[in-house]
């Protein structure tokens, strides 16, 4: 039994040595496999949610994302909807948004890109306030707080 334990211990130690030696050269390909695991995707609270609708104008595109209410075990009472503007964006942004696709505009958002001043005009009780309004590498992004 003592010998078996010694052999098992040494074998495990050598296996660990092999693991360390192959880890770094194989890091890129192993990482790709890890990234395919089912839980390896960013939570919508960070990505902003899937794109639900795109409004394409002459020079720029507005992505309206699906509202995010994700919680740990169940949906939360409050969440947000993220809007992303890409392309050549005018200095003054003014868009009316229908985030729940019921045919009625839910709010109007105006952004002055020069001073980052953002004004929200809600038409729906669920729309509360602007959480984030910021320039990004692709254009501009805003998050508007919603309640369920």
């Amino acid at each position: 039994m003592k010998k078996v334990k010694i052999i098992a211990g040494i074998s495990w130690a050598f296996l660990c040595l092999i693991l360390i030696i192959i880890l770094f050269p194989g890091l890129n390909s192993f990482s790709v496999s890890v990234s395919k695991l089912p839980f390896m995707k960013l939570n919508p609270r960070y990505t902003g949610g899937e794109i639900a609708n795109q409004v394409i104008s002459k020079s720029c595109t507005l992505d309206i994302r699906r509202p995010v209410f994700n919680g740990f075990l169940k949906e939360r009472n409050s969440g947000f909807v993220q809007l992303d503007w890409h392309g050549t964006i005018p200095d003054m942004i003014k868009d009316s948004i229908d985030f729940d696709h019921d045919g009625n505009k839910d709010f109007c958002i105006s952004i002055n890109r020069k001073d980052s001043k953002t004004v929200l005009n809600p038409f729906n009780k669920k729309v509360k306030e602007v959480l984030i309004s910021t320039p990004t590498s692709y254009g501009w992004a805003a998050r508007v707080k919603l309640v369920n």
Partner: peptide, 15 residues
């Protein structure tokens, strides 16, 4: 969160 929501709670890059 990975076990219950099947997602990562960090604003980084997956790969």
């Amino acid at each position: 969160p990975a076990a219950f929501t099947k997602s990562i709670i960090f604003p980084g890059s997956i790969i």
